[in-house]
Design a protein around this nucleic acid. Structure first.
Lengths: 132, 132
DNA sequence: CGGTTAATTAACCACAAAGTAAATTACAAG
DNA sequence: CTTGTAATTTACTTTGTGGTTAATTAACCG
């Protein structure tokens, strides 16, 4: 795939692989354990392949002991990816502020139409953008 | 590709597309303008395809006026992607802290070896992880 | 040794992605 | 109405991805 960022994003572009990472974020695990939740959807070799993709992207590390491969999360590529995204954060934050501002203006206009002049404007909550 | 997050990450997994987004982060632009930096590497239709991928992922919006398509950045999918990454931030931040702690311990041990007991330990800067 | 468990490799298939060249649409303007 | 410009669509090629089943490696255990 070439450059590291591309490899990272490509690895993240699959729900199975993201689920595996999520699972690994609360502790390491071996392949069969990691595979279990998916074995109704796909075969074991399929999971092995996903793990290989994650490994190539540096998102996990496999260490073998006896017949088990223990997989653990490596966060460095996630850091890199987040760093890249951060450059856009200021853009959407300024958009948020503009949005809020316009909404406030709009509300002010509405209030003026309905009850022209004279009650104090209640300031709405800003940035209550989303409930996860 | 299915779910929105996968589509977003897949769209970001290409340097050309990331460059296009970067370009759009300082203002909208039409297709030929956007394509210019890449025309030595690839054809115009190739760029059109990349734009289509970005559009399908909701990362850009195209509006036509006359024979020009003006493309502009849409940050919402980036927000979603960042939100997803954020759940890992605490992991690597705690790793950073552990790292720093171990390093301090290590340094303390070194000091003890070299100049056994009696000068006050100067506290090093924590979290000077990386210069971009 | 022989059997079982863990995991990968090999060989294959279907389909999507990234690119090309060439044709086509859409509009503006002489 | 023809010509030039902007951009897309079509048709095709190559390569990569995600999945399969079957075979293979590797280690442990009785």
């Amino acid at each position: 795939m070439g450059d590291p960022l591309s490899t990272t994003f490509a690895a993240l572009a699959d729900p199975t692989r993201r689920a595996i990472l999520a699972r690994l974020s609360n502790g390491e695990s071996n392949v069969t354990e990691l595979a279990r939740p998916f074995l109704e959807t796909m075969s074991l070799p399929a999971v092995t392949k996903h793990l290989k993709v994650l490994e190539n992207a540096g998102l996990i590390q496999k260490t073998k002991s006896a017949q088990w491969r223990t997989c653990s999360l490596r966060v460095d590529p996630l850091r890199e990816a987040t760093d890249w995204m951060e450059q856009y954060r200021q853009i959407w934050e300024s958009l948020d502020r503009l949005d809020d501002y316009l909404k406030e203006l709009q509300e002010a206009v509405q209030r003026d139409k309905e009850e022209p002049r004279d009650l104090p404007k209640p300031k709405g909550k800003r940035h209550a953008r989303k409930a996860k």
